[in-house]
């Protein structure tokens, strides 16, 4: 009988060409650009759970904790010099006030060990900086523009955005699986939402239509449990 492995498995990642760069896509939904030692996570939607309480819907108030624990984990794995939260980091304007002390400490720790960049989003046009970090409307790194909402129309500068919470569905074996994904073509990529309570929008939805010059160029990277799977347009739009 095989002994159970004592040490945790070490993963070998492969970088892919997306949105004008060669980056590693992590199954957590974050992206790591090794060349610039930059880690990006989109749409954390902190305190989304507690935002429902005003309507007397009491979702488990642990989503921020869960989201930040996952972020801390991926940061520990890649040790980036820069962390970009790509907008909608806070679910609403008062989310910062509701964030627990413990969760605040996690943010403070992350912001203390790297250049923490809060990109503004439609949910958080003024993200709180109580726990550190700096706020920018968008940021250009290595010739790639990181912004919350994808710009409309064709791009001249490669672009990485969030906002749309892409999910893809693939079927096989008489079943289908729906999961969060990175989706993009050569010049533009949309990242999956990172937050624990963030759902998704099917990449076949019209909101994605204007983003790619040709559908045949689109590739998606689906987040499995411990792996990311690259899927081509023939399976995505079948």
């Amino acid at each position: 009988m095989n002994a159970h492995p004592i040490s945790a498995p070490v993963r070998t990642y492969r970088a892919v060409e997306i949105g004008g760069m060669s980056a590693i896509l992590d199954p957590s939904g974050a992206l790591y650009w090794e060349e610039h030692e930059t880690l990006v996570a989109a749409d954390l939607h902190l305190e989304k759970g507690s935002s429902f309480a005003r309507r007397r819907t009491f979702l488990p108030p642990y989503d921020s904790q869960a989201t930040l624990a996952r972020l801390a984990d991926v940061v520990a794995r890649f040790s980036p010099k820069r962390i970009v939260a790509l907008g909608d980091s806070f679910h609403d304007r008062t989310a910062g006030e509701r964030l627990s002390e413990a969760s605040g400490r996690v943010v403070r720790t992350l912001a203390g060990r790297a250049d923490f960049v809060w990109v503004t989003g439609n949910h958080d046009p003024e993200p709180p900086t109580d726990w550190g970090g700096r706020v920018v409307p968008e940021i250009v790194i290595g010739g790639v523009c990181f912004r919350h909402e994808p710009s409309l129309g064709p791009v001249t500068v490669p672009e990485v955005a969030g906002h749309l919470h892409p999910v893809a569905r693939v079927s096989g074996r008489g079943k289908s699986v729906r999961c969060r994904c990175f989706v993009g073509c050569g010049m533009r990529a949309v990242m999956p939402a990172f937050g624990a309570y963030t759902g998704g929008l099917d990449i076949r939805h019209s909101a994605f239509h204007g983003l790619w010059p040709r559908r045949s160029d689109v590739r998606a990277f689906l987040l499995g449990r411990d792996q990311v799977y690259a899927v081509g347009p023939d399976r995505l739009f079948a």
Partner: peptide, 25 residues
């Protein structure tokens, strides 16, 4: 018949190419 739930990852594996190869230390 397939067994529900367990097949999810295998559908993904069928549809795509895994980007992470796991290695044991």
């Amino acid at each position: 018949e397939s067994v529900g739930g367990e097949a999810d990852e295998s559908i993904l594996a069928d549809a795509g190419e895994a980007l992470i190869e796991e290695a044991m230390r």
